[in-house]
Design a protein around this nucleic acid. Structure first.
Lengths: 339, 339
DNA sequence: CTGTTAGCGCTTTCAA
DNA sequence: TTGAAAGCGCTAACAG
């Protein structure tokens, strides 16, 4: 490895090109008021040294921003969030910005820590899928002029731009579809009630049942599964119920996949698929169509969610003066019987 | 929103605490040689103002690093790479570092652009899944003392730390398993030969066939599918062959999933599953066990790949002096008949 | 068209 | 134990 072990500075480029640092700076900023042949020499020196402007040095000057967007999500490995991150990255790249990515693992303390770090790195703004309703760290960010966009989940009491899904309506429609299919004993696998989407999707589920005069059986409701494995365990418990559900509403892809895996395992014992519950999944996911039991999905576009979140942030960064915060709710589509 | 619209500086904290900026700085760096009660006052001022040290300003001082790691991967939305990114993030976080994430979309020009940007932001190092064999931008990075770790793919001619999978051996063993299962007409869905893993996995495939005296039929080999949809299209073509393959080797999860989806579609026409080819997938993936046809996977751990890549980088950053570059090859596990 | 000066926020060095 | 000065890399503002 050719170790010059040194990052060239503007001064070195200047010396090599036989000009002052200002001329280098001007050349790199578009070249206004620099003779063409001088620009040429400067650019040659830049290329020879492999020089890159020190963005950190630039960003400490007044008026200049870092061009960074801090993104705090709960779990990058979940395809829903990674696709979301892709959307953010794409949209951010359009304005030449980069994303600083942090994983919170649904841990509020970790989230606050990450946000503090992001602020220290002078991000232009934050895109956060909040782990819970605590928001002192986010309000602090806003108070310093660093806008916050909430994605997927809102926080009660925090005035910020946000983009979420139409959770309640989706869950409601999905549940109604199950009820219309003749199911009356419907299980529920979902997130904790303390999580925005958990609350909303469960509310939509309950609303549909109530509308048909059905009281949800607490024995068929399992909340708080964060992993596929936990979801499989919860499904096993549901199936072991003396009067098992004939359908299960899965409030996210982790829970739907866990349910599917457990059902698939139990199918190998020889019981026919028709004896297993039909599934409704909030979130589409890859290979859903291979389900051995009837499966419908409440579909939406996590990439668009990411792009929208980034758009909200960029719009605010470009806006002049005070702008009221925008709350966007993206629609979801019920796709019946993808299998 | 409470808009102070201003990021407090060390000076303001100092004024509020009635001390000099240096005392604030010292307090925040551990508090050596600062009286306890003074530290107390400083920390109160910090909390009141929501102050965060400007890391960008810190990083321009000699000796100080940015604490950033630039990560350039080809597609965050691919679960393989998002899990990889999770591993990198986790390991980087252990040393208090953050990741700057960029998506290359398999585009070498975009990769070079990203790397240039990362260098401008003074990353401590780079972790790259290279889009192709061009490496001027990476050598440039190294020459400036910014180490590069290649992940998943190596580049011929670039001396850098790297962690890859045992591609050829995995593909070889997978293919042998198919041959042992009695297959002689085996299709291949994979990446372009210009991509490191594409070359190696294909080589392993061919090696196994040759060992059994079989010449691969060019009509059964489809290279270059990057998306699930393209893989489905390629599968359709394979299945339409007058003498279709009885097994298909899928060199990555995109291709395996595409094959699975196409087979699933064709199953709905009524032809029995037994008439469709058995599958071998390099990469495990979620719900593989739901495959309607026999499916084996060549499994590995993308998260460990990410952690290892980060570890290689961090080790080099912590090392003193010249250290020879390390090339790690992670093992893969053949799992027969996950379904 | 080009260069000099000054200062962004921070911390190392030196002085008190 | 504290502070003042100087300078990291860069560029607006001013001078020439």
């Amino acid at each position: 490895m050719n170790h010059r072990q040194h990052r060239p500075t503007i001064k070195e480029v200047a010396i090599r090109a036989g000009v002052s640092p200002m001329t280098v700076s001007r050349t790199l900023s578009g070249g206004v008021n620099v003779k063409l042949d001088v620009q040429q020499r400067v650019l040659e020196a830049v290329a020879e040294l492999g020089y890159h402007r020190n963005e950190n040095a630039r960003s400490i000057r007044p008026g200049h921003s870092s061009g960074l967007i801090g993104v705090a999500i709960t779990n990058i490995a979940n395809p829903y969030y990674s696709t979301f991150a892709l959307g953010v990255e794409e949209e951010a790249a359009l304005s030449g910005r980069r994303i600083l990515l942090g994983n919170t693992g649904e841990d509020a303390a970790r989230e606050a820590e990450l946000v503090g770090d992001f602020l220290g790195r002078r991000v232009d703004g934050l895109i956060v899928v909040p782990a819970d309703d605590a928001f002192a760290h986010l309000a602090n960010s806003q108070s310093q002029g660093v806008p916050v966009v909430l994605a997927s989940r809102r926080i009660h009491g925090l005035d910020a731009d946000s983009v979420v899904l139409d959770d309640e309506d989706g869950a409601y429609r999905g549940t109604i579809a199950l009820l219309d299919g003749g199911h009356t004993r419907i299980g529920y696998l979902g997130n904790r009630e303390s999580i925005f989407t958990g609350r909303r999707r469960h509310a939509g589920f309950v609303k549909a049942l109530h509308e048909r005069g059905i009281e949800p059986d607490p024995e068929l409701v399992a909340l708080g599964q964060q992993t596929v494995e936990q979801a499989s365990d919860a499904t096993r418990a549901l199936l072991a119920n003396p009067t098992p559900p004939t359908a299960i509403f899965c409030a996210n892809n982790r829970n739907a996949i866990g349910a599917l895996k457990e059902i698939n395992v139990q199918l190998h014992t020889g019981r026919p698929a028709s004896e297993f519950p039909e599934l409704m999944s909030f979130d589409d996911f890859e290979l859903a169509e291979l389900s051995p039991v009837p499966l419908s999905v409440i579909d939406h576009d996590p990439r668009a969610l990411g792009r929208t979140a980034a758009r909200l942030l960029l719009d605010r960064l470009e806006a002049v003066g005070e702008v009221p915060s925008r709350e966007i709710e993206l629609p979801v589509t019920l796709r019946k019987r993808v299998r």
